[in-house]
C-alpha cells in the first residue's frame, strides 16, 4: 500500500477506534444495569447466569482492541507527519451521497408508504438512469429531486397516521411523480445526448417491476411491504382471471 493511502487509513483508524471505545464503554455501562443477582423469569441469577455476562465479555475485549487500534494509529501518524493527506475526488463523493440517498430513501420513505410497484419502478428508473448515463448533470438532478421527495415522504410518514383514502391519494401522487420524472428526464436526456440510455432505463425499470411484483406477490405468496393502487389491482386481476377460468 502507498504511504499516502496508509496515512488516510490510519487517520480513519483513529476515528474508528474512538467510536469503538465509546460504544464498548456504553455497552459495559448499559450491561451493568441488567439483572445480576436476583431472580428473573423463575431463574435464580448468579454471575454466570446473568444476561450481562456475554455483553460485558464482548465489550471488554472490544474495548481492548479499540485501544490497541488507537495507539497503533497514533504512533503511525506521529511517525509520518510529513506525508500529505489525499482526499477522495469530489465526483466520487457525490456519487456516494447519491447512492446512499437512493437506497435509504427507498427503504425509509418509499417502501413503507407507497405502493411497492410504483416505488420500485421510480427507484429503478432514477437509479439506473443516474448511473447508466454517467452524467454528473443528471446525477445532480436525481439527487436533488429524489432526496427532497423522500424527505417529504419521511416527514409525512413520521408525523401523520394516514387513512386509507390518504394512502390512495399518495399512491396516485407517486404515480404522477413517476410519470413526470419519466417525462422530464426524457427532455433532459435528449439535451445531454443520451436518449437511448433513458430508453433503456425506462424499459428495464418497467420490465423488472412487472416481472418481480407478480412473482413475489402471486407466485411466492410474499405479501409486499405496501400494497396500494397497483398491487391491489394486480391481485384483483388474478381472481378475475381465475373466475373466468373457472367459468363463472
Amino acid at each position: 500500500m502507498q504511504p499516502e493511502q496508509l496515512i488516510v487509513l490510519r487517520r480513519a483508524d483513529i476515528k474508528a477506534a474512538i467510536v469503538i471505545i465509546i460504544v464498548s464503554l456504553l455497552m459495559i455501562f448499559e450491561s451493568a444495569s441488567f439483572p445480576l443477582t436476583d431472580s428473573y423469569a423463575g431463574i435464580q441469577n448468579a454471575w454466570y447466569v446473568s444476561p450481562a455476562l456475554f455483553p460485558i465479555l464482548i465489550a471488554s475485549i472490544l474495548l481492548i482492541c479499540g485501544v490497541t487500534l488507537l495507539f497503533k494509529g497514533l504512533a503511525f501518524v506521529r511517525a509520518h507527519k510529513e506525508i500529505p493527506v489525499v482526499r477522495a475526488s469530489q465526483a466520487s463523493r457525490w456519487r456516494f451521497v447519491l447512492l446512499v440517498s437512493l437506497i435509504s430513501g427507498m427503504v425509509f420513505s418509499w417502501v413503507p408508504l407507497i405502493d411497492f410497484a410504483i416505488s420500485s419502478f421510480t427507484f429503478l428508473f432514477l437509479f439506473i438512469l443516474a448511473f447508466y448515463s454517467d452524467s454528473p448533470a443528471l446525477q445532480h438532478k436525481v439527487l436533488t429531486i429524489w432526496t427532497s421527495v423522500s424527505l417529504i415522504l419521511l416527514v409525512l410518514y413520521q408525523t401523520s397516521a394516514l387513512s386509507e383514502g390518504g394512502r390512495n391519494l399518495l399512491d396516485w401522487g407517486a404515480l404522477l411523480f413517476a410519470a413526470l420524472m419519466v417525462g422530464f428526464f426524457r427532455q433532459w436526456a435528449i439535451n445531454l445526448d443520451c436518449f437511448t440510455k433513458w430508453k433503456t432505463s425506462v424499459k428495464t425499470a418497467l420490465i423488472v417491476t412487472l416481472v418481480v411484483c407478480p412473482i413475489f406477490r402471486l407466485g411466492m405468496l410474499v405479501p409486499l411491504p405496501t400494497e396500494g393502487i397497483v398491487i391491489e389491482k394486480m391481485v384483483d386481476a388474478k381472481y378475475l382471471i381465475r373466475d373466468m377460468w373457472r367459468g363463472n
Partner: peptide, 20 residues
Amino acid sequence: SVLITCVCANVTAKDRYPER
C-alpha cells in the same frame, strides 16, 4: 390487457366471502 382486467376487477363488487 392488465389495465382492462384492473378496470373490470373494480366493477365486481365485494359481494360474497370468500371470493379470494
